[in-house]
């Protein structure tokens, strides 16, 4: 799997699809609170795009995410989720209570901003976890 499947047809198709997949993943994350989608689905789409490039091009792709980076991504995402959630109790509300956040915006906008931050955290965590699973599956040693 280190060398990839890399035929010219696969290469051309993946080059055509990759920017649209990344764009669609970001759209699904950002618009998740008022249309179908959300952090989990958007993160899965972004991870699927990264894994597609990895499958087609192998290690030559320059898109290879080292496991350390994936772990950092996953911890950052979980930290964003927990941090935004804990801002609620700090400012006198409940856990994940976005309306308690002291932002100079209308209440609906404050809720949307908090929900967007949590969705971005979830998306980062899901992308990191899926990359990590793929890495472990590919790199697993035979003597393990």
């Amino acid at each position: 799997m280190n060398s990839g499947f890399g035929s010219p047809a696969l290469d051309a198709a993946s080059r055509l699809m990759t920017p649209f997949m990344l764009m669609f993943g970001a759209y699904v994350v950002v618009y998740g609170h008022d249309s179908p989608g959300g952090g989990f689905q958007g993160g899965v789409i972004i991870a699927a795009c990264l894994i597609l490039v990895r499958l087609v091009r192998g290690r030559a792709a320059g898109w290879v995410m080292p496991p350390e980076v994936a772990v950092v991504l996953l911890c950052t995402g979980a930290g964003i989720f927990a941090g935004v959630g804990l801002l609620g109790p700090i400012f006198g509300g409940h856990f994940l209570d976005y309306s308690a956040l002291p932002l100079p915006l209308a209440p609906a906008e404050v809720r949307a901003a908090g929900s967007l931050a949590v969705e971005i955290g979830v998306a980062l965590a899901v992308t990191g976890v899926l990359e990590l699973i793929f890495d472990v599956l590919v790199e697993a040693r035979d003597d393990a």
Partner: peptide, 8 residues
């Protein structure tokens, strides 16, 4: 939403 998750 469920369909989206299932497909992805």
């Amino acid at each position: 939403d469920v369909a989206f998750t299932e497909a992805a």
